[in-house]
């Protein structure tokens, strides 16, 4: 076998390996992007539920305007950031901003729940109970979607940083994905929505 043939064979093997790695990265990237869209769907659902909750609570919480206002504001900010991040989910900084806005919203919701604790009539309201159940479910879905997203991001990042893949990743601008994480420890606590 001549050296020319040998060279051709080696080049062919390398090209095939590169294609396989590239395709794998594409698959993993799409998987984590899909994971993010799952979170986004559930977050949207949550943003739609919160105004209903605030409306229902308003009838009972006449003197708690500040708390309600804080929730509404936090919801609007988070909603905008979510839309921005959804347009470009590969941008880690946008995802980080969304995560911090989510943290603020969770804090506001937590305060609202504490306030609502002291209004037994509100707790007994049938519509309120339904909304609470919906909200609990949505919180769970967000959490589970996050779990799936984190797994996908981890897989993608590992695949991206491993040796032969890292060359292709930097050549084809596969950027590092960011975990959807709330940085401040106090914000990691789930919002308590149960009346129990």
């Amino acid at each position: 076998m001549s050296t020319g043939m040998l060279f051709l064979v080696v080049a062919g093997v390398i090209a095939i390996a590169a294609i396989v790695i590239y395709n794998r990265l594409i698959t993993l990237r799409n998987r984590f992007l899909n994971g993010f869209s799952q979170i986004e769907v559930q977050l949207q659902r949550r943003y739609e539920l919160i105004p209903n909750l605030v409306e229902t609570a308003k009838a009972y919480l006449k003197h708690e305007n500040e708390t309600l206002l804080a929730v509404t504001e936090a919801r609007n900010t988070a909603s905008q950031r979510c839309a921005a991040a959804a347009r470009n989910p590969q941008d880690a900084s946008l995802v980080g901003e969304l995560a911090s806005a989510e943290g603020v919203l969770s804090g506001a919701m937590g305060r609202l729940n504490v306030v609502m604790e002291s209004y037994p009539d509100l707790k007994a309201d049938a519509q309120m109970q339904q909304l609470q159940e919906e909200l609990t479910s949505t919180e769970n879905r967000v959490a589970f979607a996050r779990q799936a997203y984190s797994d996908a991001v981890m897989q993608y990042n590992i695949a991206r940083e491993q040796f032969p893949a890292v060359i292709i990743a930097s050549a084809c601008s596969f950027r590092e994905a960011d975990l959807f994480e709330v940085s401040e420890p106090g914000m990691k606590q789930a919002v308590r929505v149960s009346f129990a």
């Binding site: 799952q38 159940e133 479910s137 769970n140 879905r141 589970f144 779990q147 799936a148």
Partner: peptide, 14 residues
């Protein structure tokens, strides 16, 4: 049953 539907949807995501 409404709750059950919610729970199933959650676990399906998980």
């Amino acid at each position: 049953e409404k709750l059950l539907l919610n729970v199933v949807a959650e676990v399906a995501i998980a």
